[in-house]
Structures are given as C-alpha cells and as structure tokens.
C-alpha cells in the first residue's frame, strides 16, 4: 500500500517525491538529476535599488522588474507583446491582491499590473484589484482572467502565506480549509470561480517575513530586504521557489536548521495530491535576473 505521509527518513533516503517535499521541509539541496522533462519556467528578479531611503517601493523600478520578468517568462523583447499573451482585450480581469497590514501587496505593483492590463486593451471597468470582498465584486464574479499577487510570509498555521493561500478569499468560510494545517488549499483553485482562470502569479519577496511570533505573526526583526519578485504561470512552482528562499534565510539567521513550523504541506500536496503544478525543484527552470548578492537560492 502506498504510504500517505513522509518522515524525515523518507527525505534522507531520497526517493523522488520525498526529495521534492524535502526541499520544502528541510534545508536539503536540490537533487541533481538529468531530467528530460519539460520544466516549469519561474523567473526570480531582484533590484538592489528597489526601495528608496524611507524603504518605500520605487514605482518605476518595480514596474521595470515586472516587465523584465514577464518578457523573460514569455520570451519577448517588449512588455506589451508578453502581456498580449497573458490577457486579451475582452477579458474581465481580477487582480487578487493582499491587504495584510504589516506586509501588503505594494500599491506600486498593483498599479504596474493594471497599467499593462489596460495597455493590452482591457477597459478599466473590467479590472478590479481586491483582496477582501471578492464574492460581492462584479468583476471578480464575472472574471475571465485572474492575476494573483501577494508577499510571501511565514504563517502560524499553514507554515507560509502563499499564492496558493491567497485564493482563500474566494470561499465563504475560510476556516473550513484550515484542516491539517491548510493541507488542501489547492482545492480552492478548482472551484468554478477560479478554475483555469489564473494567467500570472507574482510572489512579492521585497521584505519577506521569515519567522512568525505573537498573535499578529509580524515582527520587523524577522523581515529582511530581499527586493525580489518571483513570477510564473504555475503557482505551486512559484510558491515552492519562495519557500526555499525563506528556508535558506532561516538557516542563515538562526545559524542552524530551523524547519518551517508547521511544514508548508499545502504546497507539496498541491503538487502530489491535487496536481495543480509542480513543487519539485528538479522540474522547475529557475531564471535569476538582476541583483545576485545574497540570493539564497
């Protein structure tokens, strides 16, 4: 009978699925296998000068980062031609953002996304940027395309706040998805309001939170200036890449292996149980652009 769970020793024994999970649960190096499979493209872009002296996001810089990431992802030399592959003028576009007070999606990024979507030809009335209240928003209720963006952070119950988790606002009763540390969040992505509509995932890694303390999760002590965006079509691959950076940061900060607690089970199961995408680094083509110092991956 197939085993339904993993232990530390399964990871250490390096079966392929265990290694994929191990890179999320432990500080394990990616397994070096020659794979002929088509790999999921994920772009990590960083800019040293993204923030100004008051730690505010420079609007022009984040727009340029987004453009470069999207052009790389779609293999174009102009941002518009890349965005034309993502969005069509007749689309109704929901931009799923995140308003968590301590670490929201930067408004400068939201504006940059909206600008490109409008440039493609989508009418402004057919674009909505929202986190809460999606279920009463006409654009989201009728959306033909979704763009998903949020900052990555540790979380007391799901291990990490991810792009996968960002869609929890599409359900009426989010706590119904808390079972087994939010293991099955990927099922939300199969609901009719969401299924097959997500065109782009943008994980914000500007000042990620790598450790949670207290009821509000947040403490500035456990954030750092990384100045990155991770962009891709596969939310599982993008989240898995972000988690590897958080795990590396935790090891650097705590000077010892410190697993995410709880483990980010929902990312791994989004791959192995729900087949939404890949969490396996051997199946991800990670393209690193821009500032390389202390990249941690």
């Amino acid at each position: 009978m197939k085993k339904k769970f993993y232990t530390r020793r399964d990871f250490l024994k390096e079966s392929s699925a265990a290694v994929a999970a191990g890179t999320l649960y432990l500080n394990m190096p990616r397994k070096l296998l020659a794979q002929e499979l088509k790999k999921e493209k994920v772009v990590l872009i960083r800019a040293k000068d993204l923030l100004d002296d008051s730690k505010k996001v420079r609007a022009d810089n984040i727009a340029a980062m987004l453009d470069k990431a999207v052009m790389t992802l779609y293999g174009t030399s102009e941002p518009l031609t890349a965005w034309q592959q993502i969005i069509k003028p007749q689309d109704i576009v929901g931009i799923k953002s995140n308003v968590w007070g301590y670490l929201p999606t930067p408004p400068e990024l939201e504006k940059a996304i909206k600008h490109r979507v409008m440039e493609v030809g989508v009418a402004e009335k057919n674009i909505s940027i929202k986190d809460r209240g999606l279920l009463s928003d006409k654009v989201f209720l009728n959306a033909t395309a979704l763009i998903n963006t949020r900052p990555m952070r540790t979380h007391h119950w799901s291990g990490v706040g991810t792009l996968l988790k960002n869609y929890i606002m599409f359900v009426k009763n989010p706590s119904a998805y808390h079972g087994d540390t939010c293991a099955d969040l990927a099922t939300i992505w199969k609901l009719p309001l969401v299924k097959d509509k997500t065109r782009l995932n943008i994980l914000v890694m500007i000042t990620p939170l790598f450790h949670s303390v207290g009821p509000h999760d947040f403490n500035s002590q456990y954030t750092w200036v990384y100045n990155g965006l991770i962009v891709g079509q596969d939310p599982v691959a993008v989240d898995a890449t972000g988690v590897r950076i958080l795990i590396a940061k935790r090891k650097e900060y705590f000077k010892e292996d410190r697993p995410l607690n709880p483990p980010p089970k929902h990312i791994f199961l989004a791959d192995t149980r729900h087949h939404l995408g890949t969490a396996d680094p051997t199946k991800i083509e990670l393209i690193k652009l821009g500032w390389q110092e202390n990249i941690l991956i």
Binding site: K4, F5, Y6, T7, R8, F11, A21, Y25, L26, T181, D257, R258, P259, N261, P262, P263, K265
Partner: peptide, 15 residues
C-alpha cells in the same frame, strides 16, 4: 501534533 516539527522535521503526520 502539529508542533512536533518545531526544531527538527520528524513527520508530516501524527506518528
């Protein structure tokens, strides 16, 4: 059981 992995990943199940 969720807090079993606080320092050292043991298992993702309640073993």
């Amino acid at each position: 059981h969720i807090w079993l992995n606080s320092y050292y990943f043991i298992s993702d199940e309640n073993i």
